[in-house]
Design a protein around this nucleic acid. Structure first.
Lengths: 251, 251
DNA sequence: AAAGATTTGTCCGTATGTATG
DNA sequence: ACATACATACGGACAAATCTT
């Protein structure tokens, strides 16, 4: 599938520090994501790929093996290499952004798991966003978001401790930020801003999100406020980029 | 700098298809971007890094050499390895999104260069977004966006050919989509939606944006409409993730 | 049903690049 | 600069499963 930039090129950079099979795996992965093989539901035979990329068949086999291990492909001797379809979820971000509501229509089961929480002093960027002074206490909650039993996001969120002293416990009880805020008198809240960057996953993120090393993540830094425009939540959320995309409706 | 997830881990994956020096270069790169060395303005000595990552000093030297070549670091014998400051630009996306206006306050010179244009039939996703039938003619314009002489974005944009037959020429003249639209009777337009994903750069994108292989890009698929809510532009824009972040204000 | 083509799986060996000490 | 270990890449040959004719 042509995406509008240039016709595809299959050259391999031998001095990039990335092995040939890994580069090929990345290219095949991109081709799958862009729907290039949707008509057949399978990847071309190893011999064809080997010729296309200008490498030995064993090198292609290494690339395919890594994608099979990630669950993206499955191979059957004599038949070929089939694509396991995995729909990409869309996480909608708007003035009213809610994790569960946003993903519920697209996935069977949505869940959140708190993996750590404590109280810690505000760092500069958090203090600025929350209109506090640097060093003031914040409730810190780190949680993983699941869609269909697959981890899709890893979020570190911070609340002013003075206003929400029991935030950690309440999120642990309800597995929901919205419900925890309701119990503390915040009936509704809105998303103020979201900063999005992309980068490679760190080792910890890859472990929590069950990603292969060298995977790409989207990092969203966001601020929520109550209806009086008082900021109440600062979050840094990391999304597995190959499982989710972010949609912004600026209506 | 702790980012709220877990204490940092410096383990190297020997079976990832990515050589140790490349993995270390990526980790140092992330540390620099997250501001971990901002207080000293330099990277720790090679011997310290070697011990921290559990590798030989030669391996760390390879990693640093690749970052020096990218222009991220500079080494002076006897003094150490200094960080060359490179601020990340923020591209604001809102109902009113304009390339030049958005970046002008942050960079000295903003420029756009058209690298290709033609007329081509609408593919399914474009036709749906523009309320046309599949196969109807679209004006296609591919351009690179520069900030301070550095390429930051690569955009493939599509306009209905019936309504804007001279779009390509006008953009070529003015180097501005906004001005080209004004000349064709669209005084103002608004951003309707933006879909953001992250992935590794393709070879062509890396070439156009002057990225190393294995670099991460943000891909934004967006739709603009005129003030009568008629969609007029479908775009796929790729941003160099290490030079730019996207900011969404959901005010 | 049988033969041949296609496609993945496995074995051998060799050369090169990477990382260590 | 050198020796060692290991992962990577290549080349060829054959086996085993599946599909086509």
């Amino acid at each position: 599938m042509d995406h509008g930039f240039q016709s595809q090129d299959f050259s391999i950079d031998r001095h990039s520090g990335i092995s040939a099979w890994k580069q090929i795996a990345d290219m095949i992965n991109r081709s799958i994501q862009s729907g290039e093989y949707d008509h057949t539901g399978r990847v071309p035979p190893e011999t064809v790929l080997a010729e296309r990329f200008g490498v030995n068949r064993h090198t292609v086999r290494n690339a395919l093996a890594s994608l099979v291990e990630e669950g993206l492909l499955s191979r059957v001797r004599g038949r070929g290499t089939m694509i396991e379809k995995r729909e990409k979820l869309v996480f909608p971000i708007s003035r009213r952004t809610r994790f569960t509501e946003g993903l519920a229509p697209q996935a069977g089961a949505i869940a959140r798991e708190v993996i750590r929480s404590d109280v810690r002093p505000a760092r500069k960027e958090m203090a600025e966003a929350l209109h506090l002074k640097e060093g003031e206490p914040l409730v810190y909650v780190c949680m993983i978001g699941f869609a269909d039993q697959q981890p899709v996001s890893l979020a570190a969120t911070y609340f002013p401790h003075n206003r929400f002293p029991h935030m950690a416990d309440l999120i642990g009880q309800h597995h929901s930020v919205t419900k925890a805020l309701v119990e503390q008198g915040v009936g509704d809240y809105v998303r103020v801003s979201t900063d999005v960057t992309g980068r490679l996953a760190t080792a910890e993120e890859a472990a929590h999100l069950k990603l292969g090393s060298g995977s790409v993540v989207l990092e969203a830094v966001s601020v929520n406020a109550d209806l009086d425009s008082l900021p109440i939540q600062y979050s840094r959320t990391v999304f597995a980029a190959d499982r989710i995309s972010l949609r912004f409706d600026t209506q």
